[in-house]
């Protein structure tokens, strides 16, 4: 029974991955919108784009980690 509850928790933690997906999509979409308005400035901001994506994604990875810990380590 304890294992089953851990599985439910892991599944709930996986929702965080979806939230991270929203965040990453937001970053990339806004970058694209800005890049289409001013394409000449886009190339210089790709580094910022990747940093933003990395920060947004890190939180999704944390959720994934929580899920893994619930699955394997609790």
């Amino acid at each position: 029974m304890e294992g089953d509850l851990a599985h439910i928790g892991a599944g709930l933690a996986a929702i965080g991955s979806g939230a991270a997906a929203i965040g990453v999509g937001n970053v990339a979409g806004n970058f694209l919108a800005g890049a289409l308005r001013n394409p000449s400035a886009a190339a210089s901001q790709t580094a910022t784009l990747f940093i933003g994506i990395a920060f947004a994604e890190a939180l999704g990875i944390f959720a994934f980690l929580v899920a893994l810990l619930l699955m394997f380590a609790v």
Binding site: A54, F55, E57, A58, I61, F62, F64, L65, L68
Partner: peptide, 13 residues
């Protein structure tokens, strides 16, 4: 923490 877990987490996942 985030620096290390991001890399390992992405690759492992």
């Amino acid at each position: 923490v985030s620096h290390s877990i991001r890399l390992a987490g992405n690759v492992m996942a």
